[in-house]
Amino acid sequence: MFVSKIVTFNKVNFLNNLSNEHAFSKGYQKEYFNIGHPIDSPPTLRGSMVVELNVNFIFDNKDFFEYGSPIDIGSLMAGYINPHNFEISETKMDFFTFSRLIKDLLNVDYSDKHLLLKHQITESVHEILKLYLRNEVADFVMYDSNPHSRLFEFCLSGNYVLDSRHVKIIHIPNTYTNSNLIKKISSRFKGKVMTFNPKYGFEGRYVA
Rank of each mutant, 00 (worst) to 15 (best):
L115D: 14
L115H: 13
L115K: 14
L115A: 12
L116F: 10
L117H: 10
L117V: 07
K118P: 04
K118I: 06
H119W: 07
H119V: 04
Q120I: 11
T122N: 06
S124R: 11
E127T: 07
E127S: 07
E127F: 07
K130W: 04
K130Q: 10
L131H: 12
L133M: 14
L133A: 07
R134V: 00
R134T: 09
E136W: 05
V137P: 01
V137E: 03
Y143K: 13
S145D: 15
N146T: 01
S149K: 04
R150F: 07
R150P: 05
L151S: 09
F152R: 02
E153S: 00
C155P: 09
G158K: 04
N159W: 12
Y160D: 02
Y160L: 03
Y160A: 00
V161A: 09
L162M: 08
L162K: 02
D163E: 12
R165L: 01
H166S: 00
V167P: 08
V167E: 06
V167C: 12
K168D: 12
I169P: 01
I170N: 02
H171K: 09
P173L: 09
P173S: 10
P173D: 10
P173Q: 04
N174D: 15
T175D: 14
T175K: 11
Y176P: 00
Y176A: 03
T177E: 13
S179E: 08
S179K: 06
S179W: 07
S179A: 05
L181G: 05
I182L: 04
K184F: 13
I185T: 05
I185V: 15
S186L: 01
R188F: 04
R188L: 06
F189C: 09
K190D: 08
K190G: 05
K192N: 00
V193F: 01
V193D: 03
V193C: 14
M194A: 14
T195R: 07
N197V: 05
N197C: 12
